[in-house]
């Protein structure tokens, strides 16, 4: 009965083919993703408005006169109803205009150059976002192969000293605060042994190699943060399969243990590993504020925190949308890769 039902599902898929069904999934997820982004934008807008004080109060500080506060509010349109402001912002965003930063606008008006040509949020975020992606990319390039290899070795030598040591080390590194890991790395790799620069003040037009060198220390710190999760999932996913009949069969064919794991277990363990990798990559894009601060790395996290501090709503909104989009896209990629890693779906009957 179950077999018959499974056959039916396969048969139903047959005429459409794997590519079509994957495209359908992508389209569905993207549509859902847009809906999620919309809801996220409402939530963020509401949350930022619920915070006590607004941009005018934050920028003018304690000595603010009511007149000055009012002037800035009028200038930025903060005196209008929140729903109206949200609709205006949304209308702009839909046309690709994320608005302009309050801070930029305000600074411009102070120096009397408010000619209407303000630095847009997009222009402001773009270089920061590129930096964040660069850091995330370097980290992923180190962390993913490292964690998966460690996971495979830990599964191979499970319950050995090596396995336990790996577990203890990765767990301690994930349990330590990020700034602590960062300072430990600075101590050993920049201060005691001056191999790497402790400041990551990268700027436009830097040579790639310089950029890489300056990014290495924060990337290593983040590697320590994300390795444990990926490594432990790799280990668990592989060990979970070791009791399967086809693994026993491989052993009974006299295949050496390393090959059993890499060739027979790993291809079947990919789906959960891919999902955890995606989750950690999303973390690298959205959650690295502390590391950026320690290394003075000009990423999007710092910009985001600064903007929240001064209630710079357009920037906060834009950052949140980028973060949400990163999560959605990475999870979508992970889902598709998991589907494609299943030979039953790749090679229908």
């Amino acid at each position: 009965m179950g077999e018959a039902a499974a056959n039916l599902i396969l048969h139903e898929k047959k005429p459409t083919g794997i590519l079509d069904s994957v495209l359908k999934i992508i389209a569905q997820r993207l549509a859902l993703g847009l809906l999620t982004l919309f809801i996220v934008s409402i939530v963020i807008f509401a949350a930022v408005n619920l915070l006590p004080g607004d941009f005018a109060q934050a920028i003018l500080g304690q000595g603010a006169t009511p007149e000055a506060v009012e002037a800035i509010r009028t200038d930025l349109g903060l005196d209008q109803h929140p729903v109206k402001r949200y609709m205006q912002w949304l209308g702009g965003a839909l046309q690709g205009d994320l608005g302009s930063s309050f801070a930029q606008a305000n600074f411009a008006s102070f120096v009397g150059e408010d000619s209407g040509v303000r630095t847009s949020v997009a222009q402001q975020i773009a270089p920061r976002f590129a930096n964040t992606m660069f850091l995330a990319g370097v980290t992923a390039a180190i962390a993913v192969p490292f964690a998966v290899t460690l996971g495979i070795l830990a599964a191979l030598y499970r319950n050995s000293i090596f396995d336990r040591a790996t577990n203890i080390l990765t767990l301690s590194s994930i349990s330590s605060p990020e700034f602590f890991l960062a300072y430990v790395l600075i101590l050993f790799l920049a201060v005691l042994n001056p191999w790497l620069p402790s400041l990551s003040n990268i700027y436009d037009g830097m040579a790639f190699s310089d950029r890489l060198e300056k990014t290495l220390l924060p990337a290593l710190t983040l590697t320590l943060v994300v390795t444990a999760h990926m490594m432990r999932m790799t280990r668990a996913a592989i060990i979970n399969l070791l009791a399967s009949p086809y693994i026993e069969m491989a052993r009974l064919k006299g295949i050496n243990p390393m090959r059993v794991i890499v060739k027979h277990a790993l291809p079947n363990a990919l789906a959960p590993i891919i999902n955890v990798v995606a989750l950690n990559l999303a973390y690298l894009i959205t959650g690295v504020v502390v590391v950026e601060v320690v290394f003075v790395y000009p990423g999007i996290g710092q910009l985001f925190v600064d903007s929240v501090k001064i209630r710079d709503i357009p920037v906060v909104q834009a950052c949140c949308l980028i973060f949400a989009a990163a999560y959605i896209l990475l999870n979508l990629t992970a889902d598709i890769l998991s589907i494609v890693s299943n030979p039953r779906l790749r090679h229908p009957k």
Binding site: S244, Y246, M249, H264, N268
Partner: peptide
């Protein structure tokens, strides 16, 4: 069915 590796 269970003893052949589904991935190869």
């Amino acid at each position: 069915a269970a003893s052949f590796n589904p991935a190869h």
